[in-house]
C-alpha cells in the first residue's frame, strides 16, 4: 500500500540546542490508525507539528499525499486536520462560527449539511450557538475535533485527544475515531494511554527521547514481544519445587497454592504439555489454569525502561 505520509531522516533541534527529534523515518499507510506512543517530552508533538507545517524541521524530508511539506505546504496542509493537544479555541466565539471559520480557513466553501452532520455526530449540535467559554472541558475537545473535521481532511492528527477526559467521553471518542476510519480517514494518534492504542490502533510506534524505537503491527507486536504466563492453581499447596520440575523455573505464589510458568508464545515449543505431564507425574492435582498475555503497557514500560 502506498504511504500517505512518508518521513525520511527527520531531525529537529530547537534554538536552545535541545534535540527534539533524531533521525526519524516513518511511513503512514492510507486508511490506517497509527498510534504514536511515548512519555511526556518524547517528541510526539514536535513530530506532528512538523508534518502539519507549524514547526520547521532542521533537516530531513516529509511528504504528505506525495507533496513535500516545505516546498508545497498549501497542498499538504489542505488534506490534514489537526486536533491539538492543548484546548486552544477562541473563547468568545460560538461553536458553529468557530467550526465555520475552520472550514473557510482550509479553503472549502460553506456546507451547512456537512457541518450539521459532524456536529450531530459529536453531540454538539444542540450547543452550536453556545459560546466556547461556556462549554465543559470535554465539550471543548469535541469542538476541536469538529474544527479539524470541518474541512473533510484525508489525514487526521489527534494529539492526545483523550487527555483529561472522563472514561465515558473517552469511549465516545474512540467510537468517533473508529467511524472516521470506516470513512477512509487516515488517523495518527498520539497518546500515553496504552489502552487507547491497544484498543484503536492498527500499528504502533514508540518514540522516546526523539527517536522512534519500534514500529510494529499491533497484534504482531504483542505476539512478538509478548511474554505469556501460565498460572497453575493446585489443590494441595507446596513449599518447594520438586527436583523434576526445577528445569521449568516455576515461581511459587499465593502461599504455595499457585505455580507460575513463563513462556513465549513464539517459540516452537512452549513446554506446556511437558510441564503438565510432569506435574501429573509428581501427583500434583490441578484446580485451575489461567494464561496472561503482556499488554502494550508492559511492552511500553519495557522499551522506555531500556
Amino acid at each position: 500500500m502506498k504511504p500517505i505520509i512518508s518521513i525520511n531522516s527527520l531531525y529537529k533541534t530547537y534554538k536552545s540546542g535541545f534535540k527534539a527529534l533524531e533521525n526519524i523515518s516513518l511511513d503512514i499507510n492510507k486508511g490506517e490508525i497509527f498510534a504514536l506512543l511515548g512519555p511526556n517530552g518524547a517528541g510526539k508533538t514536535t513530530l506532528i507539528s512538523i508534518i502539519t507545517g507549524i514547526t520547521i524541521p532542521t533537516s530531513g524530508l516529509v511528504k504528505v499525499n506525495n507533496f513535500d511539506v516545505i516546498k508545497n505546504p498549501i497542498n499538504t496542509k489542505s488534506v490534514i486536520g489537526l486536533v491539538p493537544q492543548e484546548v486552544a479555541i477562541e473563547p468568545f466565539e460560538t461553536v458553529l462560527s468557530s467550526v465555520k471559520f475552520s472550514r473557510g480557513l482550509f479553503g472549502k466553501p460553506q456546507n451547512s449539511d456537512y457541518l450539521k452532520k459532524i456536529l450531530k455526530q459529536l453531540s454538539l449540535w444542540d450547543k452550536r450557538n453556545t459560546k466556547i467559554i461556556e462549554l465543559s472541558g470535554g465539550m471543548k475537545r469535541r469542538v476541536l475535533i469538529a474544527k479539524a473535521l470541518s474541512h473533510e481532511p484525508l489525514v487526521l492528527f489527534l494529539d492526545e485527544p483523550t487527555a483529561g477526559v472522563d472514561v465515558e467521553l473517552r469511549k465516545d471518542m474512540w467510537g468517533i475515531i473508529r467511524s472516521l476510519k470506516e470513512n477512509g480517514v487516515t488517523i495518527i494518534l498520539t497518546t500515553h494511554y496504552i489502552e487507547e492504542a491497544e484498543d484503536l490502533a492498527d500499528r504502533v510506534g514508540f518514540i522516546n527521547n526523539g527517536k522512534i524505537s519500534l514500529i510494529e503491527n499491533k497484534k504482531q507486536l504483542i505476539e512478538k514481544m509478548g511474554k505469556k504466563t501460565l498460572s497453575i492453581h493446585i489443590n494441595n499447596s507446596i513449599k518447594n519445587i520438586p527436583n523434576n520440575l526445577k528445569k521449568y523455573k516455576l515461581e511459587i505464589s499465593n502461599n504455595g497454592a499457585t505455580l507460575i510458568y513463563n513462556y513465549n508464545i513464539n517459540h516452537d515449543k512452549t513446554g506446556i504439555t511437558r510441564l503438565l505431564n510432569d506435574l501429573s507425574n509428581e501427583n500434583i492435582i490441578l484446580k485451575d489454569i489461567k494464561t496472561n498475555q503482556s499488554s502494550l503497557e508492559d511492552i511500553f514500560v519495557d522499551i522506555v525502561g531500556k
Partner: peptide, 10 residues
C-alpha cells in the same frame, strides 16, 4: 494558541 490553526492552514 489558536495561531497554530492558522499556521497549519493552507
Amino acid at each position: 494558541g489558536t495561531i497554530n490553526e492558522l499556521l497549519s492552514a493552507p
